[in-house]
Design a protein around this nucleic acid. Sequence first.
DNA 1: CGTCTAATCAATCAGATGATTGAATCGTAC
DNA 2: GTACGATTCAATCATCTGATTGATTAGACG
Lengths: 202, 202
Amino acid sequence: MPTEAEPRKDALVAAAYKILATRGFEGLRTREVAAAVGVNIATLHYYFPHKEDLIRGVVGYAMGRFRETLSGAGSAEGQLRAHFRGLRVLSRDEPELFAVMAELAIRGMRDASLRKIVGGTDDAWRAMLRTLLRRAQDEGALRPNLDPEGMAAVIVATLKGTFMLPATEPENVERTFRQLETLVGLRVKRSPAARTRVERSS
Amino acid sequence: MPTEAEPRKDALVAAAYKILATRGFEGLRTREVAAAVGVNIATLHYYFPHKEDLIRGVVGYAMGRFRETLSGAGSAEGQLRAHFRGLRVLSRDEPELFAVMAELAIRGMRDASLRKIVGGTDDAWRAMLRTLLRRAQDEGALRPNLDPEGMAAVIVATLKGTFMLPATEPENVERTFRQLETLVGLRVKRSPAARTRVERSS
DNA sequence: CGTCTAATCAATCAGATGATTGAATCGTAC
DNA sequence: GTACGATTCAATCATCTGATTGATTAGACG
């Protein structure tokens, strides 16, 4: 357990994480991080010689925090549902995580080593979804005419756009979410003013 | 035409826009903006008393630049196709615009007035897509069992996640794009092991 | 020419910011 | 209790950064 080994170090990372979530990189100051922990700036530099080192600490923490949510067990359909539910809960209880991830994603555009980390997590996420989709499809729980690879890419992109760049009311977030589930086949189409006609395109 | 009225002012905004795209808010310095135009800092402050004023200028420029791409004429299906094609081209020729939009979207989380602007553009985008989808649907060019409202939300979220937070290789961007078009019905399902059956939902 | 205004610049300020230094403090081993 | 390594702090540095000041230039107008 690396947690209790260096409490001060972890506290500094946690404080930086919080500030990064609320103020972004634009407003991340070493002094403020130290103050939040109630520690002298020199102490911060004792553990993290350079600001960049502290940032790497936050990156590791945030990415690990997110990767935790990727795990799961049970049927593929169940895991899929659990994954969606988990994200919904996460966005409600811990929106800071998405704020931090967004900051990191953007910074990754200018920082090759960070881009590698963020991209890796992204790829892992997409790979997990692809596998889950394929398995759920084999279980017969999903639309059969669905490309798992492409759909996984769309899901990841949609969730990133929804949770990491939420420029609108929560109602739109929920609508996006539901539509995504419908597209995958996890949700029955419940159109109230539904068209009962169904044109055939072919 | 507000463009040629104040060339220096526009040049400053353009320079700030460029720096914002490459360095983000984290690396936006008034001195650098002034230097890029070849002008004294005091001159910058003559036109933009505060840094925030300059930023507002960039916001207006970027948002206007993006809203331009939302226009269109012709059949709904044609407009939809044109819209997707336009975004593809834009992401290839002018990725800075998406970088700036991402910066603004994130900053909007902490700045109410900015959030209003970004959210407004977002809403307009979604509304346009919804209308287009509905019309294309009436034209019979799209899957009939598709909720325009929900699908518009998903499309916007996906495109934001894809272009504004591109943490992966371009190949994934293209895959996401194609899958999105397939979902809407703009692209024939070219699955080699294709299913010819078409399920009825009701 | 003289005056007024818009535009521009060199020089500078005040505060912020990442980082360093040298001196405590504290617990542990001898 | 002395010595030593690990922590922590007060004080300070060097630089950066947004902003201001006062002077200068250029053009318009009479």
